[in-house]
Design a protein around this nucleic acid. Sequence first.
DNA 1: CATTGATATGCTCTCAGTGAGCATAATTAT
DNA 2: ATAATTATGCTCACTGAGAGCATATCAATG
Lengths: 354, 354
Amino acid sequence: MARKAEKPASAVSLTAVVVAVTDEVPRVLVARRMRHDLATPAQQGATAMPGDSPDTLPYGPFDPARHRTLELGLRDWVAEQTGLELPYVEQLYTFGNQYRDPRELMGEPRLVSVAYLVLTHETPVSGSGEAHWHEIYNFLPWEDWRAGRPAVIDALIRPGLARWVDAARSPAAKARRRERVAISFGVDSAGPADVVRTLDRYELLYEAGLVLEALRDRRQMARATGGKEPRQSRKTVETAAGIGAPMALDNRRILAAALGRMRGKLAYRPVVFELLPPDFTLLQLQRVVEALTGTRLHKQNFRRTIRNAELVEPVGRFETAARGRPAELFRFRRDVLTERPAVGVGLPAMRAAE
Amino acid sequence: MARKAEKPASAVSLTAVVVAVTDEVPRVLVARRMRHDLATPAQQGATAMPGDSPDTLPYGPFDPARHRTLELGLRDWVAEQTGLELPYVEQLYTFGNQYRDPRELMGEPRLVSVAYLVLTHETPVSGSGEAHWHEIYNFLPWEDWRAGRPAVIDALIRPGLARWVDAARSPAAKARRRERVAISFGVDSAGPADVVRTLDRYELLYEAGLVLEALRDRRQMARATGGKEPRQSRKTVETAAGIGAPMALDNRRILAAALGRMRGKLAYRPVVFELLPPDFTLLQLQRVVEALTGTRLHKQNFRRTIRNAELVEPVGRFETAARGRPAELFRFRRDVLTERPAVGVGLPAMRAAE
DNA sequence: CATTGATATGCTCTCAGTGAGCATAATTAT
DNA sequence: ATAATTATGCTCACTGAGAGCATATCAATG
């Protein structure tokens, strides 16, 4: 069994999704890059064209000689590239898809990428990399329902997915596609579907050719195999620009996975507090939760839930210089970790949508 | 930045945790590596001695030339070694710890291992590997609370952890250790702590030197660095046999992670049905859930929950040849997947333990 | 055939959590 | 002062879950 690999045909790299939330805007740390090394400045929004220099998540190779564990390796990379030192770090997923990296097509070892989620505060970036904070929902605009149903859904996603369903070869395949759409985006567009299903949604859009990376990868694959252009190219002309800002490699898939993981964790782990300053008002806390889940919450009930859970304790001071009545400042109660098995802030729409 | 690795110093392997539940007994597929010992009699716990041939999870190298994705590679390995073809597969975690593999100490590339969870039915194993089904709770005896608090907890774990806490160098370190114990195993031993925290518990036992792998790794590390024997070795004499049956490499850590993942998923995804035959009684369903969570559930309430959630529909037939009143047979309603965002069977003890 | 034992199934009562909304308090802007 | 704005307290209704009682339906046993 387990015959040994003659020569290691894959290399391990570490990729970080560094997240912060400031003023209700969740952001991720990215660096522009042309090729392997070059970086370009500037940011524009959701209209990048193929050939553009795509945004890249900070990453680096895993060097076993230097780092005892994967996580320590990642912490090192993040510190070096961003100056961040002691944030919350959690492994997300390991990606090893074919055609992930163009270099691989030239005979280099497959890049298996271990992705990590890093939660921190938005600080001026200091490290070696030309990193910048970008709004997460620029990359995943269909995930933000705080101002109602995102426009892209009716404008591009629903019709695009409908075409994709119709394009299925067999009736069985069509049914399967329809089911996947229903599961990921919901049947009616009344509310957000399961807010945690971010990865399903991105992968669906990818398969349906509605994000730029899909077209890019198909083109690349066609070129590599010397074959013809992918045949969907004609059908998806109108959305050729792709929905949301693209990223390099499979970085957007990783970002989608990270967002889903964060949302899921909110419900049963007090991870929000990693994103907040030590002292905060209950509304600030609520805004961060809303920013991450992409939904609005009932204010009074949110407060009640937090207080009942004894997640926070009053600092004794009050917010200064606000418009209305000053809000009391709270801090996270570390003790809850030892008191209760599962504590979180509760996700919206987790009950039956009836 | 991102300087390229001169030569890939790590290789990627795929490890499978193949789980099935038969007659209330959750089992995992393992292969004995060096020698062929007989299966240990049930439920003992602290029996294996160092030098034993350890159980190994099925694994194989990831070969990018052969497999398009990591998951496809794993499916191939599982099929080849066990004959299983189309089970439920889900990525668990990627492990890259130092001293994971002794070969690495001889200059071979670090083995980064991507672990997968595979759910299936217990079938006679057919593949190339000498695989066998082993009871999961033989490896993790402290996780099965169905017959009340496991004996190992009072006998070995509590005192062992207490010694570990006391052995902390500084008062601060002591407090941290105490907190970790409280979080993982709970403060009182009244009920099972968070049933999902299996990985925390294993890692705690590992760090405290209460599982055989910890002693083995320390010894190996000492030998490799030419150093002296680890200094905890005297303090942990009485538990030198280690709690639970050991496994090769970090396989037991992987198993613990798999169990936790399964338990967590039960609550919000209908994964149990992957482990059940197409038609089943509600009691069978309950028994599988109990087997996985390691707890007992209230029968009537469990039935009510399942029916209210419309997770199942009656087949129209009844169980034959049982002792009492025949139970109605049900099947999983696939439609729920498109109807509700999050459906599961509910975990016990997820509310405040007061 | 009646009885016992075992299992399946139905029902009630209670309580905690939560969704929704009304009401009041404390501040700043005009 | 008055309006606007934000924070905070409270009620009411509904749902799901925990616990237990009661009944139904079978096999085995005398």
